[in-house]
Design a protein around this nucleic acid. Structure first.
Lengths: 256, 256
DNA sequence: GGTCATCTACTTGTCTGACAAGCTCGAATT
DNA sequence: AATTCGAGCTTGTCAGACAAGTAGATGACC
């Protein structure tokens, strides 16, 4: 006959106590994601335990998702409990290759968002997207506030897709990239016609979503992102096959 | 010159692999709560690692809530890993339709990854994908280790896409979703033919990537993910238009 | 024979020391 | 000045040892 009540009396393992204290320490100071934790050695001295115990404690925090470790660097706060998501994708360098990679990724996901938006958009969604479009139209005249509204436009489409994961992801990526939209809407961008060009692409996307044509919406989104990359001078690898693949197929579909 | 030595060779911590394999092992055999796990010593010999690694792996499973340990007694299955991994999904969003959202998102991104992989795969990539495929083939016979290799298969494709942002994103999503692959490779999955069905879809994807047919690779990936969702009983909203959109278009492209 | 203390074998928990792998930064080299 | 390379840090892994806790066999005692 086993004493099941012993679960409550069970001896507290050292690693449990240590992990609790570290977690409390993070919470109390409200450490921002990315903050570096003390090294294992320091933690050993502070808690008076061996490194094995500290490692098990940190291992537990890793499993809970609030700590990340990188060999040779250290341990870092990953995210406050409950909000861990795409945080893993931080530290994106606006470097050369990364920019192309991100454009490719956005092309896949945003075209998908446009397709879903065409299928599921509500009247409220259309109103929101349309308002962003009008604001950009005005920005074309006044030459002001284009970049901000551009963000709003793409976010509104993501929201209209009805897929909350997609919306969160695109919101994140959009934030990463809002800086790159600036050149399009800069003084130079207006003069060089880049702003007007982008706006024409935006109108095509909006029309497709309004009319409920998913295929056309996806194509329009892909065209827009490919053109945006070109306008920013980002060189897409194997451009002749790369992002045009589905586009080309879709055109055949249209013709057929 | 960028080192394409790639992400997956590095962040492969031993303890992560061991914990994944133990978790998959529990899932595939559908071990009842209370079942005793092999001792640490046995696990060390079986995986060929030190006790520290095994202990970290088990520590992770403890944190996930699917394993409990008692000093002097051993380690025991606490709850079905399905519930334990639901905890990971809970972090994303406790909503019901969340699984469908994630499937949609994965469908977009993984099909894109397959297309890019078909265009850019190196011989080393093909070797790695092929090895994962063979491992799954063997898992079909032995009934063991299918879920882990399934992860490896999709990650290898992501790596072959040559897009590091994509690879990181899919690695993240894969971790969130590896639990959902378990039913396919469980005992029940083998008996019901779900494993064989999935494997056939995998072969189609691999063949397309090997032959460099981007369109076919994308189609095969979309078919696979749609089927996977169906096998798991996930209801995709508006299935008749939803994920089939680009698929239908691509087929027209093939015919044309 | 039955009861109880003890002893043994085995498990997980903790400690220690060492080396490997990966990263940062600055000095030395070209 | 730009580049290379190594010292010095970090975490990751290994090996062996002992402490603490448990179950079951052993054996003594009634």
């Amino acid at each position: 006959m086993t004493m099941n009540a012993s679960i409550l009396d069970r001896p507290l393992r050292l690693s449990d106590r240590v992990s609790s204290q570290i977690e409390a320490w993070i919470s109390e100071r409200a450490l921002a994601p990315g903050t570096q934790l003390p090294t294992e050695k320091v933690l050993c001295e502070r808690f008076g335990v061996s490194r094995a115990v500290v490692r098990e404690a940190i291992s537990r925090l890793k499993a809970e998702g609030c700590v990340e470790t990188r060999q040779g660097l250290g341990a870092f706060v990953a995210a406050a409990p409950g909000e861990g998501s795409f945080k893993l994708m931080r530290e994106v360098d606006p470097d050369a290759g990364d920019a192309a990679d991100i454009f490719e990724l956005r092309c896949m996901v945003e075209s998908g968002a446009a397709e879903l938006a065409a299928l599921r958009r509500t009247e409220a969604d259309l109103l929101r997207i349309g308002r962003a479009l009008e604001d950009m139209e005005q920005a074309l005249v006044t030459g002001d506030g284009g970049a901000v509204t551009d963000d709003a436009f793409h976010l509104a489409i993501a929201a209209a897709s009805g897929n909350r994961q997609l919306e969160r992801f695109l919101a994140y990526m959009g934030r990463q990239f809002s800086a790159s939209r600036v050149p399009t809407w800069s003084e130079d961008g207006h003069r060089g016609g880049r702003a007007a060009e982008a706006q024409a692409e935006h109108r095509r996307i909006f029309e497709a979503i309004r009319s409920g044509d998913a295929v056309e919406a996806g194509v329009a989104a892909r065209v827009h992102l490919t053109a945006a990359a070109r306008r920013l001078g980002v060189v897409l690898r194997r451009p002749e096959q790369n992002m045009d693949t589905t586009d080309r197929v879709a055109r055949h579909g249209e013709v057929a």
